[in-house]
Design a protein around this nucleic acid. Structure first.
Length: 502
RNA sequence: GGCGGCGUAGCCAAGCGGCCCAAGGCGACGGUUUGCAAAACCGUUAUUCGUGGGUUCAAAUCCCACCGCCGCCUCCA
């Protein structure tokens, strides 16, 4: 099976072949840490974390790097507004970013390099460009000369002429070409900055990514990712800098994820979230979102749409996906209950399954094999996680039917139990490939002292007694009243189970 | 103005030349099950893919036009 990925440069799905056999380097543009992370910041990390997990599953040794921009104009303004230093602001915001990533199950990022820790590397890169006359200093600023990059525009597919006509600003006096961009920007002595060969200042936005990706992953690495909004100018400029300096292709595959549609930029430059405010109240930061929806559900939600498509966050969509995901988890838990096994931790071994299968299991085992095949095929096709998850839903239905038809709920012998556990593990082991369905959702029983747990035990016992006495009115009243406070009770063969809606 | 993306059932969403009288999820409606529910299972829910043309033996998938959303055009993932 061969993975094909859509490359923004060629606008086609290309066969994935790493630069170095067996190894993959991925660089993704991370956040500027000036304000709490919003939903959009979750998309890239979740997708590329899932992609790394998939590539790892396929046997590659993957290095995933996500940069942190910790110095730029917005940071300076925000820090000044709050009366703290830029570094303090960066520490604070990045800490909450890391926490959010963790909750989202994004645990495979190997490095979060910070721009301010790589100033020297940027100097080196700028020097290289200057030596090739592709960079020039004017009065403390250093510019990149886009005319020195012959295929400038190959990523965004813009022609230089287009940019000229689109450039509103008059060609700056100090620039050679209107399209030239800053590698180094002069700063005032009282502003944050570094002493450079060209004077006191701070780096331009694009240079950090070129310098860090090159330093960490090499002059040519495999995948460069980021949001579609970064295609131009950021990634185009990154290519110009890196490739002009090294003469090598910077990244073999450029992958861009779709943007979330919850935020819009108003004329005054402020972030607004029209759709969000309409549907989800005023949720906008990840922290606020997580208060309403389990982060692992958000992860599932993000992966239930193809990564190149824009995603609309809405309560309706999130709720629908939540129900679907709960149903899958319920199947997993059901199998776990019958087999008395933690299916979440189990891996599916098809050959073991084959060897233990009885005649009546043959068809089901075949289904499992096909599900695995179709799931992986979907992922191989430009990482179609949405298509892959659909396979899980189909398989879940087939598995439930198998359990019902063979009446495994009540009794089953050791062999049948092993087979069923393995069949169930097919769901979890496939889910694990992209870091999904890794465990039960946080049911809300997270109150620190477990008081709710204890109280619920009492309610359930009382209700069980009422039902035993056929006191349906009381039993139903307990259920209805709990429902009113968002706690639902399900009567299962082996006893009642409760769940709190988050 | 320039460049690019998108428009598939009530909602979300795969598919991107024949396997499509279009996957999957949510919802809805019947049925099995249940004390009643929930969950699970069975069945129904787009002969049609924004609109109009065209190419082709064959189009949701390619081309053109139009309509509607959206992104980028110097620092937003």
């Amino acid at each position: 099976m061969a993975l094909r990925l859509y490359n923004t440069v060629s606008k086609e799905k290309e066969l994935f072949e790493p630069v170095n056999p067996g190894k993959v380097g991925i660089y993704v543009c991370g956040p500027t840490v000036y304000k709490p992370s919003h939903i959009g910041h979750a998309v890239g990390p979740v997708i590329f974390d899932a992609l790394k997990k998939y590539l790892t599953f396929k046997g590659y040794q993957v290095t995933l790097v996500v940069n942190i921009t910790d110095v730029d104009d917005k940071m300076i303004i925000e820090a000044a507004n709050r009366g703290i230093s830029v570094a303090e602001l960066a520490d604070e915001v990045s800490a909450s970013y890391f926490e959010a990533m963790n909750l989202l199950g994004v645990d495979s990022i190997d490095m979060f390099p910070r721009a301010t820790a790589h100033i020297e590397d940027m100097f080196d890169l700028i020097r290289k460009l200057m030596a090739k006359d592709a960079a020039y200093a004017v009065d403390g600023d250093v510019w990149f000369d886009v005319s020195k990059c012959k295929d400038y525009g190959k990523l965004s597919h813009r022609k230089t002429d287009d940019q000229l006509s689109g450039t509103r600003k008059l060609a700056s006096e100090s620039k050679r070409n209107p399209g030239d961009f800053a590698l180094w920007k002069k700063a005032q002595p009282d502003e944050i900055g570094w002493q450079s060969p060209w004077g006191y200042g701070r780096p331009g936005w694009h240079i950090e990514c070129s310098a860090m990706s090159m330093k960490i992953l090499g002059e040519t690495f495999d995948i460069h990712g980021g949001g579609m909004d970064l295609v131009f100018p950021h990634h185009e400029n990154e290519i110009a800098q890196s490739e002009t300096a090294t003469g090598c292709v910077a990244a073999k595959y450029w992958m861009h994820n779709g943007l979330t549609r919850v935020k819009t930029k108003s004329a005054s430059g402020e972030w607004q979230d029209e759709k969000m405010s309409k549907s989800l109240g005023n949720v906008k930061t990840l922290k606020e979102l997580f208060a309403e929806y389990d982060p692992l559900l958000v992860r599932f939600f993000l992966l239930s749409t193809h990564y190149r498509r824009p995603i609309d966050f809405s309560a309706e969509a999130l709720d629908a996906v939540q129900k679907g995901m709960m149903n899958l988890l319920r199947t997993i838990e059901r199998v776990g209950r019958i087999t008395k096994t933690d299916i979440f931790k189990l891996g599916c071994d098809l050959s073991l399954l084959e060897s233990k299968a009885q005649d009546r299991d043959r068809e089901m085992v075949k289904e499992a094999g096909q599900a695995q095949l179709r799931y992986l095929e979907a992922l191989d096709d430009d990482f179609n996680t949405a298509g892959a998850l659909a396979v899980l839903f189909q398989y879940s239905t087939v598995l439930n039917r198998y359990i019902d038809q063979n009446q495994l709920e009540g009794s089953c012998d050791d062999n049948a139990r092993t087979v069923l556990a393995q069949l169930g593990a097919m769901i979890t082991s496939l889910g694990r490939v992209i870091g999904v369905l890794t465990g039960p959702l946080n049911s809300g029983a997270s109150d620190n002292d477990g008081l709710v747990d204890q109280l619920m035990q009492i309610f359930i016992e009382l209700r069980a007694q009422a039902r035993k006495d056929k006191n349906w009115a009381l039993a139903d009243a307990i259920r209805d009243k709990l429902k009113a406070v968002d706690i639902s009770i399900e009567d299962r063969p082996e006893g009642a189970v409760w769940q709190q809606k988050k």
